[in-house]
Design a protein around this nucleic acid. Sequence first.
DNA 1: CAAGTTACCTGACGGC
DNA 2: TGCCGTCAGGTAACTT
Length: 276
Amino acid sequence: MPELPEVETICRGIRPHILDKKFCDFWHSGKQLRWPIPIPAIKQHLLGQCVSTVTRRAKYLLVHFDNKALLAFHFGMTGNLGIFSKKYPRATHCHLAFTLDDKKELRYTDTRRFGAIKVFGEKEVPHIEETLFGKTGPEPFSQAFNADYLLKIAQTRKLAIKPFIMDTQVVAGVGNIYANEALFSSGIAPYREVNTLHREQWNTLIRKIRETLDQAIVCGGATISDYVNAAQGPGYFQMHFKVYGKAGEACQDCGTILEKIQIRGRASYFCRKCQK
DNA sequence: CAAGTTACCTGACGGC
DNA sequence: TGCCGTCAGGTAACTT
């Protein structure tokens, strides 16, 4: 899916197009996403309302309305949002479309339908930090994501570092691609058990996770497979991966052939010499 | 409680 | 050409 940088890119891309616009009508495909599309809540809380802000939390994109209601999108593996002219035919896997008062449409597409859409009314919104994000860890750019925190939660666990940093309860927004990239940049092997990492390594990893995500956001989100940014163009620049998808190629730092292994069922790419 | 496995769904790709 | 297996950005419900 869109990992954090892609969600951030979609967020920044659609924000100027929907800010202060009214949600006048909607259409849906009738297909289920991870959960059913909440038709009654859309009618009750969103129609006739204007967008006040558009934000991101973890891998969720959040559309806030003047009546305090909230529309939350999760993109799963293949979800995306875009602004289209009403005349432009809907894509095959478009599952939800909102007509705005400028006659344009905000369209959600999702080939694999692993994504999710939730609506919260005014009375539910104050509780989403417990309901929607109750088990979600700190944002990677927040002060709460620090070495003390990681040392504390890692000391009793023997999990490999890669699934650990991909765990949304540990830190929000780091998926498979950027976990691989940040670990390479940190010189830490993906299978390294978390209770063996020292404070200095955690500090390096925190810094590299932030740098990796930040660079990807600057690049407009990675351009991979069917991901297209909210402006419907490719990422502004091709995000350059150092290890992801590069098994069999030479490490850019030492020339060793990069390897691919499975960790917890996820493809993990690394350099055996540079990462310990 | 931690950690491993499976399921959800479609499409692209490689081998035969 | 087509059939089959494998794999893909994520998450949550299972089991061990």
